[in-house]
Nucleic acid binder design. Structure first.
Length: 804
RNA sequence: GCCCGGGUGGAGAAAUUGGUAAACUCACAGGACUUAAAAUCCUGCGGGCCUUAACCGCCCUUGCCGGUUCAAAUCCGGCCCCGGGCACCA
């Protein structure tokens, strides 16, 4: 047989798979279905090692399941809308569509060159009108249900990207894409009412996402941020206004000595209107508004406030307390906070502005003077000066005080979430148009379904100036009102690209379906996704959005499903020299150079062997070479058949064969590809040293095939098979065949290893214990001592416990 | 500050339920083959002690300290370090 030459055999088998349509998924109801999905790539230009890792992990699982007889859906597509395309257009004078589709062509061929088992017939790009028309339909249905709505509010604005951003796209006060500091702007924008689903999204994390990593579940819980508390009402003195304040610490109500209102809260203006404080208040609000999110967070300890000249009444104590606007008060809860000496922030603020403070909790319940204290008392303790609750532990009093406040009509229990509604408007061109028309007479009018899709016009110019090119495209903007047929304008904002990726997983079930976003029958067959694989960076963005969309589409009766993903695997990054591979750092290893030098199979093996999937992986050129060596060894070993000298399967060879089948099968099942490969290497070492048989080599090739499919096909053919190795059933191990004729027993004295004995597998406990004790070294350690007991762990070890 | 992970040879890592710590791979060193090199193959490879040397043997070793157990990388308590998430959310 020829030398191992991946450059000739790999394209050969890729073509073979393609021609035979081996990866085509069909709804074959006789078989059990398995939907395996990797997060779809953004077509940025070329495949990088992160993709290679993500897709190789998925491919092994897909091929493994195919061979186990599952009916596997393993699709691929393109998250094709987004800013880089538009930025490239401005910079290089190339149309975003052209740029995107050219990139897709390059990347598709790169993926094919890796030998991935995708059903390419289901491929789509999200920028295709045939895709986003259904997204526009979902949008319209959401408008009907009040789940998509327009409102004016303070939103995150990125000046770099010239667009607004969702909360999930702001990281440490900066834009997720370009790192520009995000500022707050008041704008009228479209939102999705994800907060309506906050409770279900939270509850299902515990009920239905047991197959998700704990890390992601915790992150989503934090993000949703449910808290139970009480809105306590503070009447404003000499006014009809009542200030509701949200608190989770109603046990401190008797200590409240001032009120802080968020500058964004419009109620401030009502309070100061016509008073001598009006001007100062407005100035203060303007000043805080100018602070970026980063400033307001970084400035951390620096509390600023403005007294608005009004007093409120503490309903519990009846005391009059001052009202402030304060920068540390956020638009969370009611945007009004009751403040006291048991909160660090409140305490600091009070000290700065000379506001009196009161403690009502101390360690032992003895009164303490807050005005003499240096810092807030935030521990649990015993209440004092708190009416009927004095003397109780504050944690025990808390629910009782909530009841009491409610009974006295001083407040009401409420639930708060940190999760905000999802802002989806983007002031950019390369996205799905929001299907809305504005008419002077009829107001905001949804585009009628029959007029979908609202197609993104292609004849636009990209200057990078003057806002979105769509807004300047008069043929697009100017239209007629569907209701009154008079002149009207189109919405020129496009949707956040995370909208596309929120439901693409459903579209794959029936990607050519023409009657709706998804064929309910296909969705019923394929969904939910049995295994989803992608990066941890999507933990609170994409992975919450796609759960939300699943529930929305369920409520729109498009599907019958609560959660889209049963099992989630988040793979680690690919690093070089200690940091993540990235263009900006210039530490890139291009997958193509590895393929050219060693072939796709070697690239796949390295990435699988170097680390378990969840961990970060350090790129190492030498280790890549090692994987190539291994494949060459396999090649040589198998090519020697049928002229091989030793062809006799013996007992030891049988044990090894079955043991290897067991190890590889179980390791692939739990995604431990590195140890699966170790097991194969050990088997190859064994066969090289002890001789092979046709059966042994066939087993080796089959077990190797999900990991290194090209070489496996070639060797399978060499072994005389006509069909693909993929069409060969995955072998089963025989538990009886695992039992060797003899076993090695470790012998310990007082827990220390002193030797081993090899005994026939069917030896009795007595025999083994006796043999162990007869060992010379054991005798030496036992001599002159008394044997207290002898412990026998079946098939593993003997431990002789001695005393002096 | 709170909540998750994690810490094992020169490197990447193994060790389903406590049971021979370091499998497998890389790197390194020595050897075989070769005129030579590459490739390939063989041997060694945690630390220390004993020994002229080899073999053998003994002790220590999974971040640190303590505990449970016949037996701990694994379980429990305390501490240190690294990575990630959340955080002016009342």
């Amino acid at each position: 047989m020829e030398m191992y030459d991946p450059q000739t055999i790999e394209p050969k088998w890729q073509k073979f798979w393609d021609d035979k349509k081996l990866f085509k998924a069909s709804e074959d109801s006789k078989k059990e279905k398995y939907y395996l999905l990797e997060m779809l790539p953004y077509p940025s230009g070329r495949i990088h090692m992160g993709h290679v890792r993500n897709y190789t992990i998925g491919d092994v699982a897909a091929r493994f399941k195919m061979m186990q007889g599952f009916c596997v859906l393993h699709p691929m597509g393109w998250d094709a809308f987004g800013l880089p395309a538009e930025n490239a257009a401005i910079k290089n004078k190339i149309h975003p569509a052209k740029w995107t589709y050219e990139n897709i062509d390059v990347m598709r061929s790169q993926l094919k060159r890796m030998g991935y088992s995708y059903d390419w017939d289901r491929e789509f790009a999200t920028c295709d009108p045939e895709y986003y028309r259904w997204e526009q339909l979902i949008f319209l249905k959401m408008v009907e249900k009040g789940l998509a709505f327009k409102k004016s509010s303070s939103v995150n604005w990125c000046d770099g990207c010239q667009t607004v951003l969702a909360n999930e796209q702001v990281e440490q006060g900066k834009c997720w894409r370009c790192d520009t500091v995000v500022v707050q702007k008041s704008m009228e924008q479209w939102f999705f009412k994800i907060t309506d689903y906050a409770d279900e999204l939270l509850q299902d994390i515990d009920d239905k996402l047991q197959g998700w990593p704990e890390r992601v579940r915790v992150m989503q819980k934090n993000w949703i941020g449910k808290s139970l508390g009480v809105n306590i009402f503070f009447k404003v003195k000499d006014s009809k206004i009542v200030l509701p304040t949200y608190t989770t610490r109603c046990d401190t109500v008797f200590s409240v000595t001032f009120i802080a209102i968020a500058p964004e809260n419009p109620i401030v203006l009502d309070l100061v209107q016509g008073t001598k404080y009006e001007k100062g208040a407005k100035e203060f609000i303007a000043k805080v508004a100018k602070q970026t999110l980063i400033d307001r967070e970084n400035e951390e300890k620096e509390k600023e406030g403005f007294f608005i000249g009004k007093q409120a009444i503490n309903p519990a104590s009846g005391e009059e307390i001052p009202i402030y606007i304060a920068n540390f008060a956020l638009m969370y809860g009611t945007g009004i906070v009751m403040c006291d000496a048991h909160d660090k922030r409140d305490f600091k603020f009070a000290k700065k502005y000379g506001i009196p403070l009161k403690f009502v909790i101390s360690k032992d319940g003895k009164p303490m003077d807050a005005n003499k204290a240096k810092e807030a008392f935030t521990d649990d303790g015993i209440l004092f000066d708190s009416g009927e609750f004095s003397g109780m532990k504050n944690q025990e009093a808390l629910p009782k005080m909530a009841d009491w406040l409610e009974k006295k009509k001083f407040g009401e229990k409420t639930i708060n979430y940190k999760l905000r509604d999802w802002l989806i408007s983007r002031q950019r061109y390369w996205g799905a148009p929001i299907p809305i028309i504005y008419c002077d007479k009829c107001g905001t009018v949804p585009v009628p379904e029959k007029d979908l899709p609202v197609v993104l016009p292609t004849d636009v110019e990209f200057t990078g100036e003057g806002g979105s090119p769509l807004a300047q495209h008069s043929a697009f903007v100017n239209t007629t009102c569907p209701k009154c047929k008079k002149k009207a304008r189109r919405e020129t904002d496009t949707m956040d690209t995370f909208v596309e990726s929120s439901w693409y997983l459903l579209r794959y079930c029936s990607s050519k379906y023409e009657k709706g976003p998804v064929d309910p029958k296909a969705a019923k067959f394929w969904m939910p996704i049995d295994q989803y694989i992608g990066g941890i960076e999507h933990a609170v963005g994409h992975l919450i959005y796609c759960r939300f969309f699943t529930k929305v589409m369920r409520d729109l009766k498009m599907i019958d499903l609560n959660e889209p993903v049963v099992n989630l695997l988040t793979q680690g990054m690919v690093c070089l020299g200690g940091s993540a591979m990235s263009k900006s750092k210039g530490n890139i290893v291009d997958p193509d150079t590895i393929i050219e030098k060693y072939g796709a199979d070697t690239a796949r093996l390295f990435i699988l062997f170097a680390a378990p999937p969840e961990k970060d992986l350090d790129w190492n050129d030498n280790a890549v070479e090692g994987m190539y060596r291994f494949l060459t060894r396999v090649w040589r070993l198998v090519s020697e058949v049928p002229s091989s000298k030793h062809q006799i399967p013996n007992k030891e060879g049988e044990v090894w064969k079955h043991r290897t089948i067991k190890r590889v099968t179980e390791d692939i099942e739990r995604f431990h590809f590195n140890t699966a490969l170790s097991a194969l290497m050990e088997y190859v070492n064994f066969l090289s040293e002890n001789g092979t048989s046709r059966e042994a080599l066939e087993t080796l090739v089959i077990l190797l095939s999900p990991l290194a499919p090209h070489i496996a096909e070639e060797l399978w053919q060499h072994l005389g098979h006509k069909e693909s190795v993929l069409e060969t059933p995955w072998p089963k191990w025989d538990p009886k065949a695992l039992v060797a004729s003899s076993i090695l027993i470790a012998v310990q004295v007082n827990g220390r290893l002193r030797g081993t004995v090899e005994v026939p597998t069917d030896s009795s406990e007595e025999e083994i214990k006796n043999q162990a004790q007869r060992l010379e070294k054991v005798q030496a350690h036992v001599a002159g001592k008394q044997i207290a007991k002898v412990i026998y762990v079946p098939k593993k070890l003997v431990n002789i416990v001695v005393r002096d």
